[in-house]
């Protein structure tokens, strides 16, 4: 019977066993990368990394470091499995996302190894929910090979101003052009849609820009449909770091503060739109 899982005596056969007092700290991070049905979970002694990919062109990673959990035991070096993220999120927020103030949902999550389901036990106000989610065969995830030594341009800014720009993107445009440059206009987002082109410029000395390190002028185009999902992460985050490397690959890192004041990161990688790519500078 399902209730027997709460006894805690049978925990020894789990290779992964985590516990935290506020399930929201995990669910909010996962919501930030939830643009596809399935996700790949990597667990190591450092914590959990959850990866979502689409069209071999975009990848989102949520890092939930071990410190976020109140208890984190892993018996193997690394564990990998794929899981239905939509189902996982429904389970994590089963008691409703708008809980009463002061009431949090505690979470215990266990995994017994390859082929076994992910077991979640959630508790709020004495009400208990058991979930058994099937795990799937993990696929290989993309390696974008994005090294910080190859970074050409980097801007760190507050999320709110970018959020506005992203929410108002002209979705009739196929692409979003990002210009980063040490000279004016410094940082520009452009779209080319049915009703005309738009340009949003961000001056480098704006209050919103916290760090501006651009070494050369770079204009890259990205598929807007691929970048649009990153708005989810933008909404949850306080700061965002925008980086491009010498190949024009884009990295967006979002800093997300959870309810306990801990800082977690979510990162998006996106490839530039190839056929429109200019010969290079």
């Amino acid at each position: 019977m399902a209730l027997s899982t709460q006894e805690g005596s049978g925990d020894s056969h789990y290779v992964l066993n985590v516990r935290l007092d506020n399930a929201k700290n995990v669910s909010n991070l996962l919501k930030a990368i939830h643009f596809k049905e399935t996700a790949t979970v990597f667990a190591s002694s450092m914590g959990l990394k959850v990866t979502v990919e689409d069209a071999k062109c975009i990848q989102a990673n949520a890092f939930i470091q071990e410190g976020v959990f109140h208890e984190f035991t892993i018996k193997e070096e690394q564990l990998t499995f794929k899981i239905n993220l939509t189902v996982l999120l429904e389970c994590l927020t089963i008691f409703g996302s708008t809980s009463f103030p002061g009431v949090t949902t505690s979470l215990k999550m266990c995994y017994a190894g390859y082929g076994c389901p992910l077991v979640l036990i959630l508790e709020e106000d004495g009400v208990l929910t058991d979930c058994n989610i099937k795990t799937l065969e993990a696929d290989e995830v993309l390696d974008f090979n994005f090294c910080s030594s190859n970074v050409v341009n980097k801007i760190i800014m507050k999320s709110e101003c970018l959020k506005e720009a992203f929410n108002e993107l002209d979705m009739s445009s196929d692409i979003l052009e990002i210009l980063m440059s040490p000279d004016a206009p410094y940082f520009r987002l452009s779209t080319f849609g049915n009703s005309g082109s738009t340009h949003s410029d961000f001056p480098k000395d704006s209050d919103m820009v916290e760090s501006f390190q651009c070494s050369q002028t770079q204009t890259n185009r990205y598929k807007i449909s691929l970048l649009k999902p990153s708005v989810k992460a933008l909404g949850h985050s306080t700061r965002v770091s925008i980086r491009t490397d010498n190949r024009g690959f884009l990295s967006l890192q979002y800093m997300i503060k959870n309810e306990d004041g801990q800082i977690c990161f979510v990162e998006y990688y996106c490839v530039p739109d190839e056929d429109l790519d200019e010969p290079d500078h």
Binding site: A2, V87, C91, V127, D130, I133
Partner: peptide, 11 residues
């Protein structure tokens, strides 16, 4: 097929 979820209320 994918998941089983059960919520228990007591008392």
């Amino acid at each position: 097929d994918m998941v089983s979820v059960s919520t228990h209320f007591r008392d």
